[in-house]
Amino acid sequence: MNFILGMLGSMPGAISQGLVWGLMAIGVYITFKILDIADLTVDGSICTGAAVCAVLTINGVPVGLSMCCAFLAGMLTGIVTGLFHTKLGIPPILSGILTQLILWSVNLKIMGKANVSVSSRTYEVLLSSMDNTWAIIILAIFGIALIVALYWFFGTEFGCSLRSTGCNLAMSRAQGINTNYTTVVGLALSNGIVALSGALLAQYQGFADINMGRGAIVIGLAAVIIGEAVFSFAKNFALRLLGVLVGGIIYYVVYQVVIYLGLDTDLLKMLSALVVGLFLGIPYLKKRYLRRPKRKGVKTNAGN
């Protein structure tokens, strides 16, 4: 009984963390699902957001403004990756890794050391792990606002051109879309959101840490995959984004349960990666081993 109560007691914390990472996963969704790019910048940019927000806040900048700056700093990191990719022709995955490494140094320089504390006892912050109910409310508001904003953005003329860029590069160029520009904007937007979630995470846990982004992309992908599985019925874009947010929560609730069951926490990252790897592989395995019977009257490629 105590065991179950104890586990339930840890749930609010799991939900708060899940919401923060769900927000971050919405950023990952933009690159991974819409632009069709696996962007590894996020492992660095989440810490950049946290570092900028923490350092500005402890230096007396209002937390709202600090978070705006974190968002802009995140966009900048996305632009760097985007320029590596579009101007130098470096494959996107490698571009992300380069920026990630750059950000390791940059983040250390921003913070001046490996860890900066922004305790809610000393500073006026928006949320903290001391009050999970409040944290959940704030994060849910952020999540909904972000989903509404993105739903609008990707419905606009410019947003549509971004979606088509991820869907079909050749066609997008043929329709007069500057795909280099849309790619850079998409990466900037994605990393801005990731950095914003980093800023929220720093406030929630009361510190920014140089290692906080390690494996962030895997958690983000996990949330995206879980969200898609749970919201597989959703055709609507806003609902899909909501699914990603929920995916983040589910991920952390499961995480918490697994820890409670006594699993060695050193193994958690490995298990996360293996589970994500498995789910990323499912579409391929399906195609490879579940051959559908041939339909009658299938069109052949005449003349070829």
């Binding site: 953005f153 419905g155 003329e157 410019f158 979606r163 079909n168 066609m171 329709q175």
Partner: peptide, 29 residues
């Protein structure tokens, strides 16, 4: 497969082409 965006609606594809060579704004698509 090359001439259209598979994950977008028919109407959305046509709307993309309608704006070929024009500035793409933040008005609804």
């Amino acid at each position: 497969m090359m001439g259209t965006a598979a994950d977008m609606e028919i109407a959305e594809n046509l709307a993309l082409a309608k704006r070929r060579g024009k500035h793409r704004t933040l008005k609804w698509g």
